[in-house]
């Protein structure tokens, strides 16, 4: 399992690896779960209060289902760690951050300077998400 390279949280990281969504349903004490692209994030919504870590796997960077999964979880009020794992590349991390990911464990570690530049690249954004940034239309109209 790859190490967490970037984390935008202050709480203690969960050490346990995430269990599959199926196993999670059967293990009432699990607090970490791993979502694969084909899993339905909404299956987790009834259990959000006991989850501290959700890993969203990107087996290939071009499979974008994890972005929707992340937003669905955040829109439902999930406040625990949301970690992108797998083929997480430097040019995707800013989009992932905006969709609600707050931890990144790339399979191949990223160049720290490139990653820092990527996170900071776009000062303002057109769309509201749950990342807390005001969209440009709000900046325009207050």
């Amino acid at each position: 399992m790859a190490d967490v390279q970037f984390r935008f949280r202050n709480d203690e990281p969960v050490g346990d690896p995430g269990v599959t969504v199926d196993a999670f349903g059967e293990q009432s004490n699990a607090s970490a779960v791993r979502l694969e692209p084909g899993d339905d994030a909404r299956d987790l919504l009834p259990h959000l209060d006991r989850i501290r870590l959700i890993e969203v796997n990107f087996p290939v960077f071009g499979d974008g289902r994890g972005y929707s999964a992340a937003r669905i979880l955040r829109e439902a009020g999930y406040g625990g760690e949301l970690r992108a794992v797998g083929e997480v590349l430097v040019d995707q991390i800013a989009h992932m951050r905006r969709c609600g990911f707050d931890a990144f464990a790339p399979e191949v570690p990223l160049d720290p300077a490139d990653a820092e530049a990527a996170f900071a690249r776009y000062g303002d954004v057109y769309q509201p998400t749950t990342d807390g940034r005001a969209p440009i239309w709000q900046l325009r109209h207050g």
Binding site: Y67, R71, Q92, M96, V125, Y126, Q127
Partner: peptide
Amino acid sequence: RQWSTFHPEFNFL
């Protein structure tokens, strides 16, 4: 155009 520009959820449809 503005909504779809760099929409973070829809870059890898």
